[in-house]
Write a protein that binds this DNA or RNA. Structure first.
Lengths: 252, 252
DNA sequence: CGGGCCTTTGAATTGGCTCAAATAGAGTGG
DNA sequence: CCACTCTATTTGAGCCAATTCAAAGGCCCG
């Protein structure tokens, strides 16, 4: 069985977003044709694409919908690693087992590229393996930086950063950056940011009262003051000067 | 200028540790010879290997010492991304600028491999680019999982996980896993885990009082009850059952 | 021996968590 | 189409732990 590796993988952009993604998010016609031989799976809400520990036989490309990546910790708590959106490639990496669960939040369509095909191709074509390296490197640096903002200090900061991450990804997909469909429950956001459902909720309320965002329905968010949100997320607010154990970075 | 890419890069093991590292941590003789043509830099404590924003011209391999990776956030707070130890490869990724600062904590020797050499080699030899992909993928999954433990909930949990991470890396280098030299100040650990210096300190004291660790000097740690520490870090403690917003993962 | 930085400990504060309950929505079956 | 059920969201009250503020040792190096 020889399935050609879609060129869109070998074209992963150098400025790609979190979770390796093809250039546009929406496939070009050729790209679509190249993925065509791959099988398609339609997932209903709450259905899993794969479970942690499953053999990692495929690379998946989200056609539509949203996936939640999570793990169950030994004590029963759940950790939400992140979310995958249309255009995202899921399952990169050379582990032979999946390291987390991937579950559909809404009706989701994924295309499945056999991993053996990708691995073989990457060993034959340096551009492919180099682009894979590039894609994963980018995601690594993004996760590193996200870890600094999320789970630290102020919940408003974390939530602002989370909202802006969603916003940027909409933008990359060519959609309106200020209209966000929160297709995950509050508890997912909580487990992703290391907060409780209640705190996430109260923090949304704070942002709404301050006029930074608008919440028509609980899942439908609209950003009103993008700049203020960025200032919050970047820790730009001068509210708290303490909380720094830093020494100056002196060039020497 | 053609500098051969050390084989130890192409031999990066599939079960490698955080931050891409060659197989042993201590180079074999051949490996050492291959790195020989690379220039060496000796860093004094507090001296930087590179700064965020610098052109990323080299890949570095730590020969000895410890590096702190950190960023300064817009509001002046410092975020400590992590630490690099002997054998670690620093500066992987295809960004043309460094994304964080790398500063020596103690006298440190690094070998510098021009990035153009590595890039060229990886485009010529699929094994190299594939191994780079593999190495970065492994680190990505580790950072993802670390983000779940660190900065969430209990400081004891975070600190235990941090200590164990150091321990595992010592083990990988063939050193005693239960004797750890904390060559970074408490404030570094605090900024890494999203805590304050005082809390880190008090948490060390708690672990010491519980008999899990021994602290001869503040920087010299000895693990007394490895299992208990693992239980703590894994969230294995039954102390807190709440704090879960999870729903069961039902296979369907 | 003195100065500076790091570490440790104490006391008070506060903000996120827990517990609890009301409200709103989505989906189901009559 | 409506009533009902179940889940998700929101808000309130009180508690507790990590932070803040403050100060006392320790240790290294000049």
């Amino acid at each position: 069985m020889t399935i050609p590796v879609p060129a869109c993988i070998a074209q992963l952009g150098p400025t790609g977003p979190a979770i390796a993604r093809d250039n546009a998010g929406h496939c070009s016609e050729e790209c679509r044709a190249e993925w065509a031989p791959c099988s398609v799976r339609d997932l209903r809400p709450r259905q899993h694409a794969f479970f942690a520990g499953d053999s990692q036989a495929y690379i998946y490309r989200l056609e539509s919908g949203t996936l939640r990546h999570y793990v169950i910790l030994p004590d029963g708590r759940r950790g939400v690693i992140g979310f995958a959106f249309p255009g995202d490639l899921v399952g990169l990496g050379t582990s032979d087992k999946h390291l987390f669960n991937a579950q559909a939040l809404i009706p989701t369509r994924i295309r499945c590229l056999p991993k053996v095909a990708l691995t073989r191709s990457s060993l034959e074509d340096t551009r492919i393996s180099f682009k894979l390296y590039e894609a994963v490197s980018i995601e690594l640096s993004q996760v590193q930086h996200r870890a600094l903002v999320v789970g630290q200090h102020d919940p408003e900061e974390s939530l602002a950063a989370f909202i802006l991450a969603l916003s940027r990804r909409r933008e990359q997909r060519g959609e309106d950056a200020s209209t966000i469909s929160l297709c995950m429950p509050r508890s997912d956001i909580a487990d992703h940011l290391g907060l409780t459902t209640e705190t996430v909720c109260r923090t949304f309320t704070k942002l709404r009262r301050r006029g930074l965002v608008e919440l028509k329905q609980s899942r439908h968010l609209r950003i009103l003051k993008m700049d203020a949100l960025y200032e919050l997320a970047g820790g730009g607010s001068l509210r708290r000067v303490p909380g720094t154990n830093a020494r100056p970075a002196i060039r020497a």
